[in-house]
């Protein structure tokens, strides 16, 4: 899905009134809320009854189910809310392609399993043109090979930090990484339980 607008901030991605939520999921229906709907969104409302903005790209049937977002420079600027990648992820985006990103947002994407790809703005221009020209246009992102395969058979290489690539490929977040040391934790725990049994399961 092409989002032809520079400096999209996190409030654009998910407006502040949704931050009161107790959840990390369920933000997808309010992704780009102020542009996607014609009225003001509130947490807890039934979004299926709200009037859609027919002019917003997301509401065009041809982009339904899109998992790649093509965007412009400085995507994800503004507040550091992790709700922004949560919302993109929840909606179903797996990859973002843009010429540049705001720093914190860029990091938050990796933490949440989204791949933000940086490409030269001329290449991004050409992708925009191709997507808009052809309904049902689809491209394939090959993280392992670090390339985007276009329908023409052409491949565009991209850069990604090797450690982050490793984490994404293996589905590892901070917790996943720590759990790679699960044996060490278990060994420690066993020793500690032996030495200090009073910390384990003693209860009124």
């Amino acid at each position: 899905m092409p989002l032809d607008r520079a400096n999209v901030d996190t409030d654009f991605i998910i407006p502040k009134q949704f931050l009161k939520s107790i959840k990390r999921s369920g933000f997808g229906v309010n992704l780009f809320d102020e542009h996607r709907y014609l009225d003001k969104g509130e947490p807890g409302r039934d979004n299926s009854q709200r009037p859609l903005n027919p002019d917003f790209v997301m509401n065009q049937p041809r982009y339904k189910g899109a998992s790649v977002l093509v965007a412009r420079e400085n995507f994800g600027c503004g507040s550091s809310r992790e709700h922004a990648p949560w919302a993109l992820d929840d909606y179903g985006f797996r990859v973002i392609i843009a010429p540049s990103y705001a720093d914190i947002f860029f990091n938050n994407c990796f933490k949440n399993g989204i791949l933000p790809i940086v490409l030269d703005s001329k290449i991004v221009d050409s992708i925009f043109a191709a997507v808009e020209a052809e309904e049902g246009y689809s491209l394939t992102v090959d993280l392992e090979q670090q390339k985007i395969e276009l329908p023409s058979g052409e491949a565009i290489p991209f850069e990604v930090d090797s450690f982050r690539k490793y984490c994404l490929m293996n589905g590892l977040d901070d917790i996943g990484l720590t759990l790679q040391d699960a044996d060490k934790i278990k060994n420690f725990e066993q020793r500690w339980r032996g030495a200090s049994p009073w910390y384990f399961g003693v209860q009124g």
Partner: peptide, 23 residues
């Protein structure tokens, strides 16, 4: 990595953590 013996939990800062586990 530091082993934690006790985690205390209240209602304000825990919901997203539980949600993360679930997801």
């Amino acid at each position: 990595l530091i082993y934690i013996d006790r985690q205390l939990i209240h209602e304000v800062t825990s919901p997203q953590a539980f949600e993360g586990l679930r997801l």
